[in-house]
């Protein structure tokens, strides 16, 4: 229980530190936000009084600590400020795009886990023999071909030339397959390697031989001894790997013109639209911290040794 509380505290510290960092980025970005907002509202050449009015409206001249407090308070209540490019609330812009990103990451996560289980289990079932070598070769291939290269090839060869699927992904389940596979491959490769290692390690434990000598069934050994030892490391990398999926989303979404928040963020970076960039960072960081917290708690339930840490 104490360890659980400490882990919660740790997650809160990370989130707190991250929010300071992220607000710092927003504050040090060159350029006057008031001017950007005025431009977004269609004012070409703002007069000084107009700029001053917007500065007062956004309360940009308050002390930094107050601005941080208000910004953090807003973030907690679902207010991420207004976009410097469109003048609309960032949350609104995200709300219309988040479902597409969630669909993409969920599909990629599913594909990656299934692939990793297949590859990892095949490799660990016959270490050193052909299933292992094949699986490791495939995993290496998936690891070294960059997702965006594969995405470009897949899109142009399969979709444009062979006419499979639609060129413009509209963010629905019907068009999710190619982007999801592209996003999933590298993570799947990495996870399968971890799974293979932890399965092999679990198999080589001496208490397994003792258990076998006492006449336990293969299934019992797998269930009681091997899986509980092999699953936590696997779960941990999957948990941390969601960061890879979140981080990979901007790239893959841009390649496939997927209408999610990742592509929106890349566009925002090019337009130096900081509230959107910062909003994405905050959402991604939150997702990451919460996932790794959950994974750690689940692992602690599976493996008692992790509880005392």
């Amino acid at each position: 229980m104490r360890a659980v509380l400490r882990r919660f505290g740790q997650a809160l510290v990370t989130l707190g530190g991250a929010s300071v960092l992220i607000f710092g980025m927003l504050a040090v970005t060159p350029g006057d936000p008031a001017r950007r907002v005025l431009e977004a509202r269609g004012v070409r050449e703002p007069t000084p009084p107009m700029v001053a009015a917007v500065r007062a409206e956004l309360r940009l001249d308050d002390p930094l600590v107050e601005r941080f407090a208000r910004w953090a308070g807003g973030a907690l209540t679902g207010d991420l400020g207004i976009s410097w490019r469109t003048g609309r609330p960032v949350v609104e812009e995200f709300a219309t795009r988040l479902p597409a990103t969630l669909r993409l990451t969920a599909a990629a996560l599913l594909i990656a886990v299934v692939l990793a289980l297949l590859l990892g289990a095949a490799a660990a079932a016959a270490p050193g023999r052909w299933p292992d070598l094949t699986s490791r070769g495939v995993a290496l291939g998936m690891l070294v071909v960059p997702g965006f290269v594969l995405g470009v090839l897949a899109l142009d060869v399969l979709v444009v030339r062979a006419g499979l699927g639609r060129v413009i992904a509209d963010g629905t389940w019907a068009t999710v397959f190619l982007p999801a596979v592209t996003l999933a491959l590298a993570s799947a490769a990495y996870w399968s390697r971890v799974l293979r290692t932890s399965l092999l390690e679990a198999q080589s434990a001496s208490h397994l031989r003792v258990s076998a000598a006492r006449g336990s069934s293969r299934w019992r050994r797998l269930r009681v001894h091997e899986l509980p030892n092999a699953v936590p490391p696997f779960l941990t990398v999957i948990g941390l790997g969601t960061a890879g999926l979140i981080g990979g989303a901007p790239v893959v979404e841009s390649v496939f013109t997927w209408p999610g928040i990742g592509r929106h963020t890349v566009e925002a970076i090019n337009a130096r639209d900081m509230p959107v960039v910062v909003g994405f960072t905050l959402v991604a960081v939150l997702a990451y911290v919460v996932t790794s917290l959950l994974v750690d708690l689940v692992c602690a339930t599976i493996d008692p040794r992790l509880r005392t840490r």
């Binding site: 740790q10 997650a11 510290v13 990370t14 530190g17 991250a18 960092l21 992220i22 980025m25 040090v28 970005t29 960061a243 890879g244 979140i246 981080g247 990979g248 901007p250 963020t265 890349v266 925002a268 970076i269 090019n270 130096r272 900081m274 960039v277 910062v278 994405f280 960072t281 991604a284 960081v285 990451y288 911290v289 790794s292």
Partner: peptide, 24 residues
Amino acid sequence: RFTDILLGLPTVVLTLAVIGVLGP
């Protein structure tokens, strides 16, 4: 503490944010 906070955050996402500040 600072290192631990950085370790607890997704690198790619942070990189994107810093590029947002500095510009491409």
